[in-house]
Design a protein around this nucleic acid. Structure first.
Length: 266
RNA sequence: ACCGAUGCU
């Protein structure tokens, strides 16, 4: 029974949407009826593969089969629609679930807040952030990080840092990702000096910077044309066992070209 | 037990 979820996810991982769809028939062939978990699992796969129409069909099927959507169903749909750049549709679903006596939880809010932030609509995201708190739903590190992402994306670092302080003050400690988000935000505004201060802070707190953190810093240094420090950073990260990837090299190559040192690229 | 949310192109 729950093994079907593993299979659906496996097909989803392989991008085999049709095979995942067939699992619904398989479940019935085995004499079971698909549960809300099976539907949720399948919806997640379909939305990840951008099969919005098929997802709609499956969702309708759920309803007609008397399998009422759960909070997880709505969260899956909201997340999927946000990923498909249909944030308004996601907001509509969010309102709809209230009418169905379902209360959004921290996953639901986080998905919607992140979707709005990704669309650059951080002020509407802030509205839902306040809404969740007044509904007694406590934001967690994922919610906070999503908002920090939104403020950084819109170059509003003051608000991003405000949220960051709020976390520390509310027993929701920032994680490595929170720091990386701020580091990226600073670097994108040519403020890599401050970003390196944050790198120190995060290390003081015992977080080990990962490849993404280093890539953000690399991007910043290269944007500022600081090739010397960029090479220093490259050395430093490799010494710490971090393998550079395309996100590391591409800004470096760009900066080298810009400075006329094209030969160094090779 | 098993389904849902956050970082660099």
């Amino acid at each position: 029974p729950s093994d079907f979820n593993v299979l659906i996810k496996g097909y989803g991982w392989a991008g085999m949407v049709d095979a995942a769809m067939d699992m619904l028939k398989q479940i019935r062939n085995f004499g079971f009826s698909p549960t809300v978990m099976h539907f949720n699992c399948l919806l997640g796969v379909l939305l990840k593969e951008n099969c919005l129409d098929t997802a709609q069909t499956v969702y309708n099927q759920m309803l007609t089969e008397g399998c009422p959507p759960s909070v997880i169903t709505y969260t899956t749909l909201i997340h999927g629609f946000c990923a498909a750049r249909k944030v308004d549709l996601a907001c509509r679903l969010f309102k709809e679930m209230g009418g169905n006596d379902l209360s959004p939880d921290v996953y639901t809010y986080s998905a919607l807040i992140h979707g709005l932030c990704k669309a650059g609509r951080v002020e509407k995201a802030s509205f839902y952030f306040e809404d969740m708190k007044s509904n007694g739903c406590l934001p967690n590190v994922v919610t906070y990080n999503a908002l920090i992402y939104g403020f950084c994306k819109t170059a509003n670092l003051d608000c991003a840092f405000e949220i960051f302080s709020e976390m520390s003050a509310t027993s929701c400690e920032p994680d490595a990702r929170s720091y990386t988000l701020l580091i990226d935000g600073l670097c994108k505004l040519d403020r890599s000096q401050e970003a390196f201060k944050l790198l120190n802070d995060m290390q003081q707190k015992g977080f080990v910077p990962g490849i993404v953190t280093y890539n953000c810093l690399m991007n910043g240094l290269c944007k500022e044309g600081n090739l010397f420090e960029a090479y220093n950073l490259l050395d430093g990260m490799m010494n710490k066992g971090c393998i550079p990837n395309v996100y590391t090299y591409s800004p470096l190559i760009g900066a080298l070209c810009k400075s006329g040192k094209v030969h160094k690229v090779y």
